[in-house]
Simulated assay, not measured.
Amino acid sequence: MKKILLIAIAVLSLSSCMIKTEKKARNITVTGTGSIAVENKEATLALSVITRNEDVIKASEENAEKMTAVMKAITEAGVSSDSMNTSDYSIRQEEVDRQFSKKASIQYVVSNRLHINIKDIARTGVIIDAAIKAGANQMDSLSYTTGDTKEAEKQARILAIRDADQKANILVATSGLTLGQVVNIAEREDGYYPVRPTALLKGNGFNTPISAGTTLVQVAIDVTYELQ
């Protein structure tokens, strides 16, 4: 019985020594970023024809006439009919104050919004001018797309890893330590930034200058290294 007790005490003592002498791993985590500019290839334009009249039929007829002219002008400017679609159509009432009358009158406001996919991005300004001249009187939105960004994302990740490695080496350069193996890599979900216009479209005789430029694909990665 005494032998068993002595063995147990010896094991506990050895375990205690091992716990006390165990070294805690030392790590460093840095964030690397990489960016690649990708040329925009297509544009998406949303514009509207808005008409007003105290007679709802007249307001809607005028709107239909103007939108027909707008769609024809856009087609003649080089956009196919399957690249256009009506995204919203509405009729609402609006009160109009009369300067010399105590009673306000009602007029009807008809709005027809057209969505246009422009595959030849260099003609964006031409198409906007054509639509305005034909009767479009409200610009709702203009956005750009780059198409496939997989290759750009791949290159941005490579740059992000290199950036993280450079930062980590600088941080430990004066510490007397050296970088060990990479123990963890995690890409941040918020590392993609798709809008950065930089260039101005010129020429072709149109009056509306449109900045299309490039989209910035950016990746941010957290890298954890061992310290030796």
Rank of each mutant, 00 (worst) to 15 (best):
K3C: 04
I4K: 13
I4V: 12
L6A: 15
I7K: 07
I7F: 07
A8Q: 12
I9F: 15
A10M: 12
L12K: 03
S13M: 13
L14K: 09
S15I: 12
C17P: 06
M18Q: 13
M18R: 08
K20D: 07
T21F: 14
K23P: 02
V30F: 09
G32E: 07
I36Y: 10
I36H: 02
V38I: 08
L47Y: 02
S48H: 06
S48R: 12
V49R: 08
T51S: 11
T51D: 11
R52K: 15
N53K: 12
N53H: 15
V56H: 10
I57K: 14
K58S: 15
E65M: 03
K66V: 04
M67V: 09
T68G: 15
A69Y: 12
V70D: 01
M71D: 03
K72E: 14
T75L: 05
T75R: 11
A77L: 10
V79Y: 06
S81G: 06
D82W: 02
S83P: 01
M84I: 06
T86L: 12
D88F: 07
D88Y: 06
Y89P: 02
S90G: 07
R92I: 01
E94G: 04
E95D: 14
V96T: 09
V96G: 11
V96R: 13
K102Q: 02
S105E: 08
I106H: 01
I106V: 15
Q107C: 00
Q107I: 00
Q107H: 10
V110Y: 01
V110N: 12
S111K: 14
S111G: 03
R113F: 00
L114F: 01
I116Q: 11
N117K: 15
I118G: 06
I118C: 01
K119I: 05
I121F: 09
R123N: 15
G125T: 09
I127P: 02
I128W: 01
D129C: 04
A130C: 10
A131R: 02
A136I: 00
A136H: 02
N137I: 08
Q138D: 15
M139N: 05
M139T: 04
D140A: 09
S141A: 15
L142K: 06
L142N: 05
Y144K: 07
T145K: 05
T146G: 06
G147Q: 00
E153W: 02
K154D: 05
K154V: 04
K154I: 01
R157D: 03
I158G: 00
A160C: 08
A164K: 09
A168T: 05
A168R: 10
L171F: 10
V172G: 10
A173D: 05
T174M: 11
T178E: 08
L179V: 07
L179A: 04
I185Y: 03
R188D: 08
E189W: 01
D190M: 05
P194L: 00
P194R: 08
P194Q: 12
V195N: 13
T198W: 05
A199I: 00
L200W: 12
K202M: 10
G203S: 06
N204H: 05
G205H: 07
F206L: 00
F206H: 14
F206S: 15
F206P: 07
F206D: 13
N207C: 06
N207Y: 08
A212N: 04
A212L: 09
A212P: 00
G213T: 05
D222V: 00
V223E: 10
V223H: 03
L227T: 08
L227I: 06
